[in-house]
Design a protein around this nucleic acid. Structure first.
Lengths: 148, 148
DNA sequence: ACTAAATAAATTGTATACAATCTAATTTTT
DNA sequence: AAAAATTAGATTGTATACAATTTATTTAGT
């Protein structure tokens, strides 16, 4: 019978946080070789994914979708702007809001991105059922964080 | 019957990568208020966790354990050094290796860290079974990445 | 023993992240 | 309507991350 040892709670192997942190970091690293070919980073890629799904959105909405704040998004959007993938214009009805839109070049990049997700999936060694369960649990964690 | 639409693969909601990335980011953010009280960051905390579990390890071993490279660890270890939590000395049998050890202050910090994991667990709205399954799946992802 | 290859950290350069603060614009209160 | 509160982005400062390169040391091959 093993009794409770407070030391155990501080072992990496007993923490959910560490594998979450590490797998998040490692999976984005897996994207790098593919995204390098497109000349964008992972964070730039997910910003474009938001826009590919729904064009003309505010910085605030992008941030809410991706859990990123303006300190990250402002310089990142400037990079996407200078690369010619997006354009900015302020919302006439509320000049505080900055609306981000895809340029033709930004929209065309989507075609090149199609091939990436299946290649990443292949590197994730999970069955379809496991991947679905992981997906469900991760969103449950994320949703749970929103409350407090 | 819905036919396959290549657009769907590029939706955030269809990607495992995004919730991995986001939950990793968000859970470390949850640690911040607790770690602020100790005056350390999340990455510094997991480096200390490695040392609390096994003292006197090389930079390389810390990096392997945490999936971090020297570009991240070197400046971070210098911060822990200047805060007085660790000491450095090179391995006599191989001067390339830098051995990191806890100071008394670094060891004592462990007592203050005990209380943190249970408080984070409380914010993760998963049942014990779900948390275990998530843990298993995340490590399966991480292990799968090691191969290639 | 001597050179080539390999290894461990440090360094350099680029790109996030995010808290905290600031600024401008809009809304709410009074 | 004027003042106060709120909101959206931008800015500032600190701390990761990591690829690529460099340096010092060690090991392997001849």
């Amino acid at each position: 019978m093993s009794s409770f040892n407070p030391d155990d709670t501080l072992k990496l192997s007993n923490q959910l946080c560490f594998p979450l942190y590490a797998s998040g970091k490692e999976i984005t690293r897996k994207y790098k070789p593919f995204l390098d070919k497109l000349g964008i980073t992972y964070t730039q890629y997910i910003v474009l994914m938001v826009l590919w799904e729904k064009d003309h959105v505010s910085v605030k909405e992008i941030g809410e979708r991706l859990y990123l704040d303006s300190g990250t998004l402002t310089p990142l959007l400037n990079k996407l702007l200078s690369k010619g993938y997006i354009s900015k214009k302020s919302l006439p009805s509320d000049n505080r809001e900055l609306i981000i839109s895809l340029t033709k070049k930004g929209l065309e990049l989507k075609k090149e991105a199609y091939a990436i997700p299946p290649q990443i999936s292949r590197e994730v060694k999970l069955t379809k059922e496991e991947a679905q369960e992981l997906y469900r649990l991760l969103y449950k964690v994320l949703e749970g964080f929103k409350d407090e």
